[in-house]
Computed example of a mutant assay.
Amino acid sequence: MNTEQLKQEIIDYSKEIGIDKIGFASADVFGELRERLRRQQELKYQSGFEKGTIEERTEPERLLPEAQSIISIAIAYPSRMKDAPKSTKEERRGLFARASWGTDYHTVLRDRLRKLEAFIKEKVPDVQNKLMVDTGELSDRAVAERAGIGFSGKNTSIITPEFGSYVYLGELMTNVPFIPDDPVDDSCGECTKCIDACPTGAIVEGGQLNAQRCIAFLTQTKDYLPDEFRTKIGNRVYGCDTCQLVCPKNKKVDFHNHPELEPEHDVAKPKLKPMLRISNREFKETFGHIAGSWRGKKPLQRNALIALGHYKDKTAVEEMIAVMNNDPRPVIRGTAGWSLGKIGTEEAYEAITIAMKNETDVGVLYEMQKGLDFRQELSMK
């Protein structure tokens, strides 16, 4: 088998099936990453969403014993929404991060990787492969960095020369011994814009992220959002793009190469009030095809309540009172009470006071009291 010829054939085929960039890496142990993950674990910076042990995440042979190479792919996604709808005082809107625009990228990348896998199998019938997208054990970023897709920026994103950091990543492990590509030089230099702009200080130093403080992670949690982060998330209902938006490498970067990744206006920037009363069926029909739906509707509804409080949306008070009084989920009832207090109308305060007489959940009562405390804070100003 002529691996150099096969490699070129794979590169050519990847362009035909909609892969924007492809690179080849060795399947050697990711030693530097292993130490970084251990340090991350010691500092309790992990999100808890990570899959596998540190060994499984850094030793490819544990996942595919015969692994000799890893093929990394990148697909560019849009950074700008054409004719984006605007929030109005009557209809406030939330925002999904760009990584959740269009069809779920896991679906899109798996489609490309399966086609790539089938192509290789046709050329090498006894080949052994294993593909992964985001939810696999391997670090997509570490593989992409080694394969020359881009360099790992201070914001912990892979930054490509062509598409900035607006790329989705996936990989295919194989027992074919391809010649590895050269890594891309790190060109962040002295720039610290992403570190300086992070709303919660989650980027503790260049390339080191405290996931527990990252808004992208926090918007996906299901419990009460800690107080210090509630004013930070603004109108975000899922994810955060700040560290990408301020990156000089992303200036004027906006690719629309894949129709399935184009944002739908009312999905990527949904009206907040309808989200409060959306049924499970409606949620699945509206949001089920995007990446941001994977945790279900509860975190998104909690974030929508916080966003309405952030906007001080008086038009939402009646609906939020109904949520506070009737929703079976304590986190949603409690967040509604807190957010009503944030809006700060007399109707809201009165409703909280009445609701507290009937509420039995200690956590909800605590949140409602915080909502009432906003009245005292306002009177002292």
Rank of each mutant, 00 (worst) to 15 (best):
Q128L: 14
M1F: 11
E260R: 10
K115E: 14
V331N: 00
R333E: 01
W101E: 03
I278H: 11
F151Q: 01
K252D: 15
R302C: 01
R114K: 15
P183Q: 02
Q128C: 08
I290Q: 06
M173D: 06
I11L: 07
L37P: 00
N280E: 15
F283K: 11
P330K: 06
A27W: 09
M275Y: 02
Y166R: 12
S157N: 15
D181Y: 05
L276I: 09
P270I: 05
E285D: 14
I75G: 07
Q8N: 15
F119H: 13
L63A: 02
K249A: 15
V323D: 02
E318Q: 09
A216T: 15
F374T: 02
V167M: 07
R92M: 04
R110M: 14
G344K: 06
V127N: 03
G189P: 00
L116P: 07
A144E: 12
G201W: 01
T335S: 00
A84S: 13
I22K: 08
L95C: 08
I321P: 03
D134Y: 14
L261I: 10
I321M: 05
S152V: 11
K222D: 13
A67I: 06
A355S: 13
T192E: 12
T53R: 03
M380Y: 12
G309H: 01
N257Q: 11
S379L: 15
P328H: 06
P274Y: 01
T160S: 14
L169A: 10
A118P: 06
G296H: 03
V143C: 08
P274W: 04
D254Y: 11
C214D: 12
D361I: 02
G201C: 05
D111M: 12
K249V: 09
I179G: 00
S47W: 12
D140C: 13
M81S: 05
P183N: 04
S139G: 04
Y349I: 01
C247S: 12
R98I: 05
V323T: 07
T135H: 13
L276G: 10
E205P: 02
P85D: 05
A268N: 01
G296K: 03
S139L: 05
T335A: 01
A84W: 02
R34M: 14
P274V: 04
I233L: 14
P199T: 12
F287H: 11
W294C: 02
P299T: 09
D111P: 07
I233S: 05
R38E: 13
M275R: 04
